[in-house]
Simulated assay, not measured.
Amino acid sequence: MENKTGKYIKYAIGEIILVVIGILIALQINNWNENRLNTIEEQTILKALKTEISENQITLTKDLQRHTNVLRLLTELSDYIEPEPKLISDKRLDSLMFSLGWLPSYNPKEGVLNSVISSGKISLIKNTELNSKLASWTSLMNEYNTALNWSEKDVFDLVLPYLQKKYPLKRALKYFITKNKSKSKFEFSQEALLSDMAFETIVAERIIDASDSLEAAKDLFDFQLQILELFEKELKE
Rank of each mutant, 00 (worst) to 15 (best):
D222C: 03
A210Q: 08
S123F: 03
E143N: 10
S132I: 00
T61E: 11
L230M: 14
T146S: 09
S115C: 00
Q226N: 15
N33S: 10
K86M: 14
V20H: 03
I58E: 11
K218L: 12
E15M: 01
I58T: 14
Y167N: 06
L124W: 05
L214F: 08
P108S: 03
K183W: 00
D79A: 13
K126E: 11
V155S: 12
F186L: 10
T146H: 04
K183T: 13
L46P: 08
G120Q: 01
L230D: 13
K121E: 13
R72Y: 11
L64T: 06
E110P: 02
H67F: 11
L93E: 06
Q57R: 14
K121W: 02
I207C: 09
L194Q: 04
I122G: 04
G22V: 00
N127V: 07
E191P: 01
L140W: 01
K62H: 10
E152Y: 12
E200K: 06
L130R: 06
T201D: 09
N35S: 14
I21A: 08
G6T: 00
W150Y: 10
I53T: 09
I45Y: 03
L73K: 01
K165Q: 12
I21D: 00
R72L: 11
F188W: 04
K236H: 09
E200D: 07
G22K: 00
M97W: 03
M141E: 08
I16V: 03
D209M: 13
P161K: 01
T5E: 12
F176W: 11
W137R: 09
P85V: 03
S195D: 03
S189T: 03
T5H: 06
K183N: 11
K153W: 11
D154T: 13
N114A: 05
L60M: 09
N131Y: 08
S195M: 01
K165V: 15
N30G: 11
V112M: 05
K236E: 15
G14A: 02
K62G: 13
N149I: 06
F188S: 00
